[in-house]
Amino acid sequence: MLAYAIRRFLLALLTIWAISVLAFAIIQLPPGDYVTAYIAQLASSGVDVTPEFAENLRQQYGLDSPVWVQYLKWMEQISRGNFGRSLEWRAPVLDMIGDRLWLTMAVSLSAVLFTWALALPIGIYSAVRQYSIADYIFTFIGFIGLAVPSFLLALILMYVGFRYFGANIGGLFSPEYQLADWSPGKVWDLIKHLPLPAIILGMAGAAQLIRIMRANLLDELRKPYVITARAKGMSEFRLILKYPVRAALNPFVSTLGYLFPFIISGSIIVALVLSLPTIGPLLLRALVSQDMFLAGTIVLFLGIMTVIGTFISDILLMWIDPRIRFERRE
């Protein structure tokens, strides 16, 4: 059991490393280097740049050394908490990301919760009452959820809200809280605004999970242990929840590892449509204006967030499946 957890942990570290390389590649890919761009920007805003200052920066980022040295230097800077400066916003990258990262997390987590809260009962119902009218309706809705990409769903809902209710349903805060400091009122306001993005982000995932849950449960319902349980005289409701659902939950939980990256991915683009003050719009701007330190850092943070989410779901899976605990994984 511990070995499993350690293995997962090492894999998570490895993934974070891979993401850091990718983030570095993203920073490096555009033509020109950061220091030249930074100095040009300083010069254009009338700051006198001494050659020594420029040389210092070059040294700091190892621009004259091979790429892998540059990567190590970048990592070194990061380990000191220096993520570089945003060229466009003329501020340390970390300050730019701040709140937006937490809001991204809040949106993504609520989407995950919504996905589960929707997929679990519907999946169970659809399997237990296979071929009922409700099963067909849910299957149909599931397919729609699968076929409408989240950003299109967001666009359509925005249009409906705007057109028929005259309300802008985007954003995460009411106007009066937008610039206010954090307070219980603001948190409550946030909670009130979370459901819509959560639903939009969660639809596709929920549709997929419903199908997985339904298929798994249908398989499990045919297994002999269900008949055993029935022969004990258990009530059908208790029986289904205790045995087959419990078994079908495993593959369900293991999808959580993929659900999380999927939702974070989706949140980037949905945030743009719904103009959420999350990290998505910032990333897009940074990429469009080639503000690469900002962009690279955001990719890095999003990656780390995902890896942590995946790791937690792995641990959850271990806790839920005795076979993993006994190292009997196929």
Binding site: L22, G257, P261, I268, V299
Partner: peptide, 11 residues
């Protein structure tokens, strides 16, 4: 698979 794809693609 555990890397969020859209930010990566965007980058």
């Amino acid at each position: 698979r555990s890397i969020p794809t859209i930010p990566l693609w965007m980058g």
